[in-house]
């Protein structure tokens, strides 16, 4: 792994009593938000449209200036910094992507490094590295944005945000405009990417399922960006703070919980010496296993290390364990 990708690790963001009040409006758009976003984690702000989640996020890179309160990144009060300098240390990805249509992909990605005075060869190397990181062929560097599909454009959007290796990234519904299949794909890619880069990421969405999937932590927001609950996805599913949070989880909360639980995190029983049992890989979720049980009409499945019939069997999973996991007992994450 080249050094620059993992160059700068994430830094902690801390919001203290941050309020945004627009002149002429009775209610503040954001009211006294305080939260700590731990370094290297993905924190999802989720809430209905108009709840102030985007405003809260944009105050972090000061596209919107807070009326009062303090925001620190890595201990530095961001309000004391020059806004433009400050933004160069924050990657910014938006739903509409916003690639510059008159610039080639390489110039879109390389724009900020070039302005930061990187040498031409270093910029070119960085562009190539980032294209590979987001899974695009190297020859796309010479293309114009309109020659790419929506999903490809958003990958470039992510690459551009990462270009100057910022410790912090802000993502405003980044996958909101893509079709469900592409979105799922981009989400998975992004999670893989984040395991490598370990940035601190603030992720805004109105889709609770996306929040569950992407977030290390989720902040469920009420209007005026008031925090209803701020916790890990598992904890929110297990114990929603109130009816408002529960309404976000919606139907199928138990299944959603199982979907968060990977088989590798569940205590498996020894494999029974019976042939013909359904097999599932250890990377799958407990929900996948349950689906397989229901489909095959079997109350036990074999968990394997890899795909294929001759893969090593790691153990077995019983329906009883699944039910226990739903109740929050069997998992040891």
């Amino acid at each position: 792994m080249p050094e620059s990708i993992t160059g700068r690790p994430g830094e902690t963001i801390e919001l203290t009593d941050v309020t945004k009040r627009y002149p002429g409006q009775a209610e503040p758009a954001v009211e006294a938000v305080s939260m700590v976003i731990p370094a290297g984690e993905v924190v999802v702000l989720v809430g209905p449209s108009g709840c102030g989640k985007t405003t809260t996020m944009k105050m972090i890179n000061r596209l919107i200036e807070p009326t009062s309160g303090t925001i620190t990144i890595g201990g530095t009060d961001v309000l004391t910094l020059d806004p433009d300098q400050h933004r160069r240390d924050i990657g910014y990805v938006i739903q509409q992507i916003g690639l510059f249509p008159h610039k080639r992909i390489e110039d879109n990605i390389g724009l900020l490094p070039k302005r930061l005075g990187w040498s031409r060869s270093r910029v070119r190397a960085r562009v190539a590295e980032l294209l590979e990181l987001v899974g695009l062929p190297a020859d796309y560097a010479r293309r114009y944005p309109r020659e790419l599909s929506g999903g490809q454009q958003q990958r470039v959007g992510v690459a551009r945000a990462l270009a100057a290796d910022p410790p912090v990234m802000l993502m405003d519904e980044p996958f909101g405009a893509t079709d469900p299949i592409t979105r799922d794909h981009l989400q998975n890619e992004f999670l893989r990417l984040q395991r490598e880069v370990r940035k601190t990421i603030v992720f805004v969405t109105h889709d609770f399922d996306e929040a569950l999937k992407m977030g290390d932590r989720i902040a469920v927001l009420r209007p005026r960006s008031v925090i209803a609950q701020y916790d890990t996805p598992e904890a929110i599913l297990a114990a929603p703070a109130d009816d408002y949070v529960a309404s976000f989880i919606g139907a199928g909360g138990q299944l959603k919980k199982l979907a968060l639980l990977r088989l590798r995190d569940v205590e498996l029983a020894p494999a029974p010496r019976v042939g013909g049992l359904p097999r599932i890989v250890v990377d799958a979720t407990v929900r996948d296993a349950l689906d397989l049980m229901l489909g095959e009409g079997s109350d036990v499945v074999l968990v394997t290390g890899d795909f294929g019939d001759d893969a090593e069997v790691l153990g077995s999973l019983h329906l009883q364990t699944v039910m226990g996991a739903a109740a929050g007992k069997a998992g040891n994450p």
Partner: peptide, 13 residues
């Protein structure tokens, strides 16, 4: 498109 200027401002130009 204001999206483009916001993207540019957002990256610190």
């Amino acid at each position: 498109d204001p999206v483009l200027t916001e993207a540019a401002r957002g990256m610190g130009l």
